[in-house]
């Protein structure tokens, strides 16, 4: 018995309970996939499911990593400056990512039918919020620098 478990472990690559757990998740997903297969829009759902992974791993990540490299080049070793650029940039990008449907006005008619209002204000609000984040970061950066550097009045 123990020997058989050990053999399974060697051939499978993990303990038997691992097989049970992953199989359960895969069977559930397989069952859902079969159920949805007859839907006219099944292909689109699959496309969005896999597309979301590709969009994150192979588009969003490389893009933000590249932007970060750009910011590093810009800051040229001044790490505090770098981070005071990174934080508001991340905040602004996050807001865009989450609220892009409104910012880009991707649902003008349904938005109007549901709420009685248009999507016009969101772009300006996002720009203002982003500006506020950068401004806040710039102010705290300057304050930190003044605190860190020896006071001028002392040396006078």
């Amino acid at each position: 018995m123990a020997e058989r478990a050990a053999r399974l472990r060697a051939r499978y690559g993990a303990a038997p309970w691992h097989l049970v757990v992953v199989t359960a998740a895969l069977v559930l997903a397989g069952w859902v996939a079969l159920r949805l297969a007859h839907e006219a829009t099944a292909g689109r759902m699959l496309l969005w499911f896999l597309g979301a992974v590709i969009a994150h791993d192979l588009v969003l990540f490389p893009v933000y990593a590249a932007v970060d490299r750009g910011l590093r080049a810009l800051a040229r070793g001044r790490v505090t400056l770098l981070n005071h650029l990174r934080a508001p940039a991340l905040g602004s990008a996050l807001l865009f990512l989450v609220f892009s449907p409104g910012i880009l006005r991707l649902g003008e008619t349904t938005h109007l039918a549901a709420t009685g209002q248009d999507q016009r204000p969101y772009l300006m609000r996002w720009l203002l919020l982003s500006a506020a984040l950068f401004l806040l970061s710039a102010v705290t950066y300057l304050l930190r620098r003044r605190q860190a550097s020896p006071k001028r009045s002392d040396s006078a």
């Binding site: 829009t41 689109r44 759902m45 969005w48 449907p101 409104g102 991707l106 649902g107 938005h111």
Partner: peptide, 12 residues
């Protein structure tokens, strides 16, 4: 996110 912002761009 698309649902609460009324953008039914996904088409399903």
């Amino acid at each position: 996110l698309l649902n609460i912002q009324y953008s039914y761009v996904f088409g399903f």
